[in-house]
Design a protein around this nucleic acid. Structure first.
Lengths: 117, 117
DNA sequence: GCCATATTCAACCCGATGGTTGACGATCCC
DNA sequence: GGGATCGTCAACCATCGGGTTGAATATGGC
């Protein structure tokens, strides 16, 4: 009924959620740690994580008291293929990707991408 | 402070709008012709076209009575780069793209496509 | 058992979104 | 000018989305 692309694109439409995905690109994180950089409440972040999980973009696993969030990049594949069909864009360009992450967060990207600075 | 990715992804989150983009991939179209396959009102389609135009995904140009809609695939570039940064997906795979277009357009034909005639 | 920590749930507020209908402006053609 | 076609606008309605706060649940440590 509902196309999975609907929920994936809708999840990506929010800058907080894109920032969360960028953080998880580096490593799995606990919910509390995910929420830490944001000025919104923990409950709001928990909702965002629920949206991301419903879209298949992350999974959450409880270990003890802590719930760990893991990026599931495969969920982006369908959406990526869809978009590439329109533009024949260049293949993966991680430099451009980092620039976008930086422009999105208004914080240095080394907060998010620690490697290859 | 609004990131252009916000509006692009939000525009792509609606299946009607994705279908419109897919139609425009073939050729420029008049608003009335864009609306024809859908069961919703012309005003609703006009709103969708406004959302797509605000996101930069299409442009509209009046020629006489008719307003022609043109796809602007470059607006997808930033979003595509963003997504590719996550998955290192395969480069453009047009076969997969066509399959996705089919799954979007053919399957829900009883919902998207008009029922009269 | 008790308390602190980690996370979600429930109820609410408010602005955005997608849909409708009917009126309106613009344009072409006669 | 008159009439038909093209498209948007305005007002309205219902639903969704993101935010809040406070209570509830789950777990670990003492």
């Amino acid at each position: 009924m509902t196309n999975p692309l609907d929920s994936v694109f809708a999840a990506l439409a929010d800058p907080t959620r894109r920032a969360i995905l960028a953080m998880l690109l580096e490593d799995d994180m606990a919910v509390t740690d995910v929420a830490e950089p944001f000025s919104t409440s923990l409950a709001a972040i928990s909702k965002h994580l629920g949206v991301l999980a419903d879209a298949g973009l992350i999974t959450r696993e409880r270990r003890g008291r802590v719930i760990w969030c893991r990026l599931e990049p495969d969920a982006l594949r369908a959406a990526s293929v869809w978009m590439q069909g329109f533009g024949q864009f260049d293949p993966v360009d991680l430099d451009a990707f980092e620039r976008f992450l930086e422009s999105e967060l208004d914080v240095p990207s080394d907060k998010i991408l620690t490697e290859h600075e």
